[in-house]
Amino acid sequence: MKTKKLINDPAAIIDEMLDGMLAAHPQHLMQVPDSPRSIIARDGPRDGKVGLVIGGGSGHEPTFVGFVGRGLADAAAIGNVFASPPPDPILECAKAVDGGAGVLFMYGNYAGDVMNFDMAAEMAAMDDIEVRTVLSTDDVASAPPDRRVDRRVDRRGVAGNFFIFKAAGAACDKMLDFDACERIARKANDHTYTMGVALSPCSLPHTRKPNFDLGPDEMEIGLGIHGEPGVERGPIQSADAVADALMDRILSEMQPSKGDTVAVLVNSLGSTPMMELYLLNRRVKQRLDDIRVGLHATWVGGYCTSMEMAGASISLHHLDGELIEMLDHPCDCAQFRVG
């Protein structure tokens, strides 16, 4: 059976989505002339400021375009569904937001994204734009267990991008120099941990077939945001039990001390409703209270989705003074606002 979707021609889905996005957020977003998949902030890019270019495949809305705006990303390069953008639109983003102080590329750690963004960085260097890259690697479920190298390096970027991009965007907006922006971006990534659970798969617009099978009473912990199968499959459990399973993994990695402070994102992967996200968040708060970890701020909603997938993820951003300053720094994007 094919999934029901409100679409026109699957081949036109990205361009039609961008048309709708630009129509909805004309005060925040615009396309680079002749490069329609390069979306830049109307307010933000300026001389002397480190430019921040994010991007990746479509299907995760509001990630990535929703995070383009003053105080956050200057531009996003958009790929096909679940597919990295090619180098050209990434390069056009870099050119459009280059203020002469360097350009940061930030995106989730996926093989395709790395190849395309690296090719774009090589092309930017030929145009005398200095590019540095900070990959997000917040998915604690995603390091293959047999690797001897640093597990962090092998991980994928998922919903925790929200905090990682926010910190980097703030550093850039505060006109910090290239080294400081890069350092803060890396630190934000090192301080962000995400675990997810899937209850049902999603399907690509071209095929409208579920991209993996999950039994009617099953859930899968640790799935990727492209529906890549996860690390552990089992019978569906209560919201509290699922929140505990995700929090156990996150906390065992994060190792917070009593009195530490975190920010929380409870994220829907697509079709899981706010009601269920709030149940998860209730348990997250109880768990943090139990270990005397303070809560600086919480976001609940669909920030990094996987089309119509059912499921959720929990991200914890382990704060210190500097990261609090970055998180609280004002931003004004299509989907998100602080201050």
Partner: peptide
């Protein structure tokens, strides 16, 4: 090919 797909297959 590259500009149509990006992804992993594009650069490869």
């Amino acid at each position: 090919f590259l500009n149509a797909v990006g992804a992993s297959a594009g650069p490869l």
